[in-house]
């Protein structure tokens, strides 16, 4: 083939390929209700459950649900919010901190498009945010510990006050333990979380075990999330003190915690967020808003579930 023929051919191929690649776009319906879901976090299992539940409920309502994942890139999430605002979708659902995407939320507001939070954080630019109640989750595990100890015992707490959603959990546990005069907090630890939270918590717990050598001198470990609880469990096992009946509880019900609860060697309880319920509740809020109802609640809480040996099997099978 001569050079110029080849060049002409190449250019045509490029254009045709560009056009063909978009052929699929023609089939997207334009008339029905379209809802865009924007998240950088679709790779997280919790987000996947929420989005799938939202899609199922949305499709049952006859909506076109367009899920946009920016693979961890928050700046791209802002851009995609601007794009769907320009596109004129009927509603937008976000699963990202609203404070970080406020430029995109303003674009949606300027276009008159309602935005809903799916475990996103409360924000004046959202119609509402659907999430789990951090206070309630902490109350579940703190009362579990108090009841297990019959109101008497020495407790190690693992908290993390620099992060507001976890700080909330800590103050509730503080209040519940303070309400039982015979419960003593022997340490309130803020672990270093840069290693994921397990390793440093284990080291801190080993030091506490060394400082409290008598059997029965530690009654329980209350952790504001699962990783420190898992670290404490490892420390207790490494010290050979798993026979003392130290009660360990976490929050979040991550897969490792569920395994530990099922194994039944001290890690007794955690709290599972109902991600499927959150996704469905967001769809419900969108439907209510589109039907003209005014949603007064800036935050809608979906109940969480206490996971213990009694019900752990159903969470592991999920």
């Amino acid at each position: 083939m001569s050079r110029r023929k080849f060049q002409g051919f190449i250019s045509v191929v490029f254009i045709v390929a560009a056009l063909l690649s978009f052929g699929a776009a023609g089939i997207v319906a334009q008339d029905d209700i379209t809802v865009a879901v924007v998240t950088p976090y679709l790779a997280q299992p919790g987000t996947q459950f929420m989005v799938e539940a939202f899609q199922a409920a949305g499709e049952a309502n006859g909506w076109t649900v367009n899920v946009i994942d920016t693979a961890g890139d928050v700046a791209a999430a802002v851009s995609r919010l601007e794009d769907v605002a320009a596109q004129g979708v009927d509603a937008i659902v976000i699963n990202v901190d609203p404070a970080q995407v406020s430029v995109g939320l303003e674009a949606a507001a300027a276009a008159g498009i309602p935005v809903f939070g799916m475990d996103a954080g409360a924000d004046a630019n959202l119609v509402t945010n659907v999430t789990s109640n951090g206070y309630a989750m902490a109350a579940e595990t703190a009362t579990y510990v108090t009841d297990r100890l019959n109101g008497v015992g020495r407790i190690v707490m693992f908290t993390f006050d620099p992060y507001p959603p976890v700080q909330k959990r800590g103050i509730i546990a503080d209040a519940i333990f303070a309400n039982s005069p015979d419960i003593e907090i022997i340490d309130r630890v803020t672990p270093d979380v840069t290693d994921g939270g397990i390793a440093d918590s284990r080291a801190r717990m080993e030091a506490i075990l060394a400082a409290n050598p008598e059997a029965g001198s530690i009654s329980a470990v209350w952790a504001a999330w699962d990783q420190p609880a898992l670290g404490a469990l490892q420390a207790i096992e490494a010290a050979g003190r798993e026979g003392e009946g130290i009660v360990i509880v976490g929050i979040d019900a991550n897969p490792q915690a569920l395994d530990a609860i099922a194994a039944g060697n001290g890690f007794e309880a955690s709290v599972a967020q109902d991600f499927t319920g959150i996704g469905g509740t967001v769809a419900d809020a969108v439907a209510r808003h589109l039907a003209g109802e005014i949603i007064g609640q800036g935050v809608i809480y979906v109940p969480t579930v206490l996971v213990t040996a009694a019900n752990v099997a159903e969470f592991i099978s999920e």
Partner: peptide, 21 residues
């Protein structure tokens, strides 16, 4: 990115298309 988002093309398909182009 803007156009494919407006056309509601799946975000993973968008990545594949962009890379291929």
């Amino acid at each position: 990115r803007n156009g494919l988002t407006q056309l509601a093309i799946d975000s993973y398909v968008q990545q594949i298309l962009t890379g291929a182009i």
